[in-house]
Design a protein around this nucleic acid. Sequence first.
DNA 1: TTGTAGGCGTTATCAG
DNA 2: CTGATAACGCCTACAA
Lengths: 341, 341
Amino acid sequence: MREPTTPRAPRAVDVAAAAGVSTATVSRAFNAPEKVAPEVRERVLQAARDLGWFPNAAGAALASRRTMLVGALIPTLDHDVFAAQVNALQARLAAAGVTVLIGCSNYDLDHAAEQVRVMLARGMEALAIVGEEQRPALFKMIDTRAVPYVVMYAHRPNSPHPCIGFDNEAAFHRITRHLLDLGHRRFGVIHQPSTDNDRVLARLEGIRAALATEGLAIRPQHMTEGPSGIEFGRQALRSIFTQGEPPTAIICGNDALAFGALIEARAMGIAVPQTLSITGFDDVPMAAFTDPPLTTMSVDNAAIGRAAADYLLARLQGGELEKPGPLATTLIERQSTGPVA
Amino acid sequence: MREPTTPRAPRAVDVAAAAGVSTATVSRAFNAPEKVAPEVRERVLQAARDLGWFPNAAGAALASRRTMLVGALIPTLDHDVFAAQVNALQARLAAAGVTVLIGCSNYDLDHAAEQVRVMLARGMEALAIVGEEQRPALFKMIDTRAVPYVVMYAHRPNSPHPCIGFDNEAAFHRITRHLLDLGHRRFGVIHQPSTDNDRVLARLEGIRAALATEGLAIRPQHMTEGPSGIEFGRQALRSIFTQGEPPTAIICGNDALAFGALIEARAMGIAVPQTLSITGFDDVPMAAFTDPPLTTMSVDNAAIGRAAADYLLARLQGGELEKPGPLATTLIERQSTGPVA
DNA sequence: TTGTAGGCGTTATCAG
DNA sequence: CTGATAACGCCTACAA
C-alpha cells in the first residue's frame, strides 16, 4: 500500500533539519562538496537520499544566475540529419552537466524567432541554431542578451556568425566537378525547397559555379524543386525525362531524392550509370545498398553536434574563440555515376 | 555600430517604471491581459517591447509553481521512430504553451533514471517515457512527486502504467500468423538487442505464442540478436543459412534488419519470396521500394506522440483519465512474403 | 482596475 | 568549516 504521499516536493530546509545543519551547508554539500567536512557532507547526502531531495532548478537558477541550459534550434526532428546532430550535441553537453532544450521551427522563420524568444525567456545560456537564414530579430535578441551561439550544419566562409558545419557550396561544387570529370555536359537537378533555406541555396550556387567554369548551365526545365523524399524524386525524374533532350547526369539534394530518381529510372528502363548518372547527398546507410549503389557525399553529423557542443562549452567558460573552420565532407564514389556514354 | 549593451537582462521593474505602473500590472498584462485596462495594457506591452523584456522563466516558475515544462525520455533521437514521436508530441504541446525537454537514455536504464531525476529537478510537470522496463527508482521518484506520466510507444494490456502505443506482442503475433497462413513452418528471427527492452521481449513473445498455436517453435540457431541496422541483418541472414536446414520465413525486428536480410538473400542467390519470405516492421518510406517491396507493419508514430500529448495535457488540466487503449498497427502486405514453395 | 507586500527555493556573501 | 541573511525575478492574494 502506497502511503498517502504529499505531492509537495521536499525542500532544502527539510534536508537541513534532518541533517541538523543549515540550508547553506546543504547547498554546499551538493555544489561545493570540498568545502564541507566529510562527515557532515555524508550526513547531508544521506538525509537528501532519504527524503528524495534534489535542488529545485528554478530556485537554483534564480539565485545562482546560472541555468545550465543550452538551446538547440532545428527545422525538425523528423530528419536523420538534424536528429543526429542534436543527439551528439546533447550527449556531449550532458556530460558537462548542461541540459539541452530543443526547439523545432518546421522551416518557418517566424516560428524560429518565436522559439528563440521562448528559449531566451527560459534562460538558455547558449544557443545552437541550424541555418543562418533567420529573421534579423532573432539574432538581435541573442545579441542584446549577449548569449553565446553558433550556427550549426552550414558553414559559409564569409558568414558573420560562428558556424560549425561544412561548406555546402564547396560540397556541391565537388560533386559537380566529379560529374564533369566523367565527361557529363547536360545536367539535371532535383532539390529540396529553397525558400528561406541558405543550405539549399548554397548548394545550387555550388553547382552553378562549377558548371560555369566549363561554360555550362542547367536548362530551367531540368531544375526541379519539391518536398524532400523518395516520392518527389521519382516524380521529378520522370518530369525531367519528358522535357526535351534529357541530361546525362542528375544531381540530387539528398539521398532520399536520389533513391526516388534511381527507382524511377529503373522503372523507365533508363540504365544507371550507362545512360544516366545520379548523385545523392548524406550517405545514409541504405545508399551503399541500392542497385546500383549510390554515389553520394558523406557528412559526419555527429561530429558537427560534438563540435558545436565543444565550441559552446568553451564560450561558456569565458573564452573568446575565433571562428571555427569548415568540417570536411567526403565524396563516396559508388556505381550510380560513370563516364558519359 | 552596436551600442555597448549591458548583458544584464531587463526586469519587470524596469518595464513597470517605463510604463508608469507597478510590477503587478506588468505581470498581469502578460498573464491575464483581460484584467488590465486596454490602454494600460498597451502601454505595458509597448514598454516591454522597447526594452526587449519577457518574463524570466525561473522567477515565474518559482512564484507560480508552474514551469510549463514536460519531459520526454527516449532511448535515442538517432532513430526515426522516436524522433517522429517526440516531434509530434512537441508540436502538440507547444501549441498549448508547454515546452518539451528531451532526455536520451541510450538504452541504459541507469542513465534513464538519472535523466528523470534531472527532469524532476527542473520541474517537469509531466513526463512521457518510452518503455516500461525501467528501474523501480525511476517510477518511485515520479510517484513521490505525483507527477502525471505516460509510457509511450509500447502498450501492454496488463501494464500498471498508462500506456500510449501499440501492442507489440499482438503485432508480431499478427505477422507470424500471416506467415503461418502462407504455409510456412520453419522460421528464423533477426531482432534487436532484447536486454532491458520490453518492446523487443514482447515481440519475441508474440512470435513464440503464434507459433505455439501450431505446435511450432524456432530453432535456437535461427534466432539471432544484434545491433539494429542493415549490416547486422546481412550477417544474421548469412548465419541462419549456414546452420542446418534453413527456414522458409524470416521475421525481422524492424525494416533496417529486413533490408539487410533482403540484400544478403539476393547476394546469396536466395529467391524472395519464392524460397524465402522476409518481413520487417515500421514501414519506413524505403520499404515500398526495395526489390521485392517489403511486407511490414505500419505504425503511426506521430499519432502516438499526439495522443501522448493530449493525454498529458488532460492530466495537467486535472482529469483522472482512464488508461488509454492500444493504438492500431497495420500489416502492409507487399511482395517479400509469399506462399511456401 | 491597480498597487502593496509576502513568498517561491536556492545560492552567495559575510561573519563567526 | 558553518550559519545568518539578503538577494534572485516574478506572481498572487489582499487591500485600496
